[in-house]
C-alpha cells in the first residue's frame, strides 16, 4: 500500500526557470494495484517516480509505503522495498561485472545478508533457475560481463534484478521504450508474467495509449504536476483511446500534445 498525500515539488524556485513539477498531488495505491500512467512531456510522471524513490525530497506532503513514512528516508534505504526499472537499459546493470555478480548484488539487496556474505552454490542454482525463465539463454552465460549483452537482454536482466527480492512496489518508467518492437513485446510479457505471479503492486509510465488501457487494472493521467484523470476496473474496461483523449481534453481544457502518444500503435 502506497499513500501519497498532498505532495508538492518546485524546481529552481525563485529563478526564471522555476518549474512546479508536482502540485498538491495525492494518490492511494492499494496492494496489488497495477496502475498505468500517461501524460504529455513534462506532466510530472518521472518526477513522481523520483519523488517516491527519494532522488530528491519533496517540498511538502508525505509519502507512506506499507505503513512506514518514507518522506525523508534517504534514497538508498527506500530501495530496500522498491524495484525501479529505467527507460535506459544501461542504467540498471553494471557492465563490467558478470551476470552472476549483478544478480548477487540484487539478491543481497533486501539487507538481511551479512556484509561479508558470498554467494553460495545454492544461490547460484537459484540464479540459473531464474535466468532460465527469461528464455534468452542467459543461464549459460553467467560468467559473461553484462556489457556484452544486448539492450533487451540487459533490460530483462534488470527486471529480474528488480524483482529478485519481491519489492513492495515496482516502478516501471517506460522500460520498453528504448527497445526494438519485438524485444519490447518480449520484455513486456516477461514483466506481466512476473507481476501477476507475485501479485506485485506496480506503477508503469507508458506513452502507448492502447497499452495504458489494456495493461493493469487502473489508469491515471497526469498534466501540469497533477492527476487529471483516474479510472479503474469496470469504468476503464469500456473505454477506448478516443474516450481517454476526450476525457483528457475535458479535464485540462486542452488537447493532448505528445506526438509519441498519438502515433503509438496498437499492440498485436
Amino acid at each position: 500500500m502506497l499513500s501519497i498525500r498532498h505532495l508538492s515539488k518546485t524546481f529552481n524556485a525563485g529563478t526564471v526557470n522555476e518549474k512546479q513539477a508536482l502540485r498538491d498531488l495525492s494518490l492511494e495505491v492499494p496492494d496489488g494495484d497495477f496502475i498505468t500512467i500517461i501524460g504529455s512531456n513534462g506532466a510530472g510522471k518521472s518526477t513522481l517516480f523520483n519523488a517516491i524513490c527519494g532522488t530528491f525530497y519533496a517540498d511538502a506532503g508525505e509519502i507512506v509505503l506499507a505503513g512506514a513514512d518514507i518522506t525523508y528516508l534517504p534514497e538508498y534505504k527506500r530501495y530496500h522495498e522498491i524495484g525501479h526499472i529505467f527507460q535506459d537499459p544501461m542504467k540498471g546493470t553494471a557492465p563490467h561485472m558478470t551476470i552472476e555478480e549483478n544478480l548477487s548484488i540484487a539478491y543481497f539487496r533486501a539487507g538481511r545478508a551479512g556484509t561479508l556474505r558470498r554467494v553460495s552454490r545454492a544461490d547460484k542454482a537459484l540464479f540459473r533457475e531464474q535466468l532460465a525463465l527469461l528464455d534468452m539463454g542467459l543461464e549459460d552465460r553467467m560468467k559473461s560481463p553484462v556489457g556484452l549483452l544486448s539492450g533487451g537482454q540487459r533490460q530483462a536482466l534488470t527486471l529480474l534484478m528488480a524483482t529478485m527480492v519481491t519489492p513492495k512496489l515496482l516502478l516501471l518508467d517506460e522500460h520498453t521504450a528504448a527497445l526494438d518492437p519485438a524485444t519490447a513485446d518480449k520484455v513486456l510479457s516477461l514483466t506481466m508474467d512476473i507481476v501477476s505471479a507475485r501479485r506485485l503492486t506496480c506503477l508503469m509510465v507508458t506513452h502507448n495509449m492502447h497499452q495504458a488501457l489494456s495493461l493493469g487494472n487502473r489508469t491515471i493521467m497526469m498534466d501540469g504536476g497533477k492527476i487529471v484523470l483516474d479510472v479503474r476496473d469496470e469504468t476503464r474496461a469500456g473505454m477506448t483511446v478516443q474516450d481517454l483523449l476526450d476525457q483528457f481534453a475535458a479535464g485540462t481544457g486542452s488537447a493532448l500534445d505528445a506526438d509519441r502518444i498519438l502515433l503509438s500503435k496498437k499492440p498485436q
Binding site: 538508498y76 546493470t93 553494471a94 561485472m97 548484488i105 539487507g111 556484509t115 558470498r118
Partner: peptide, 25 residues
C-alpha cells in the same frame, strides 16, 4: 567476492544501479 566487495565494484561501474540496489555509495 563478498556482498560489500561486490558493492564496491559496482559503485565505480554504474552509480544509478548501485543506488537502485539499496547500496549507500
Amino acid at each position: 567476492g563478498t556482498r560489500l566487495g561486490l558493492s564496491i565494484r559496482a559503485t565505480g561501474d554504474n552509480a544509478s544501479m548501485v543506488r537502485a540496489s539499496s547500496i549507500n555509495p
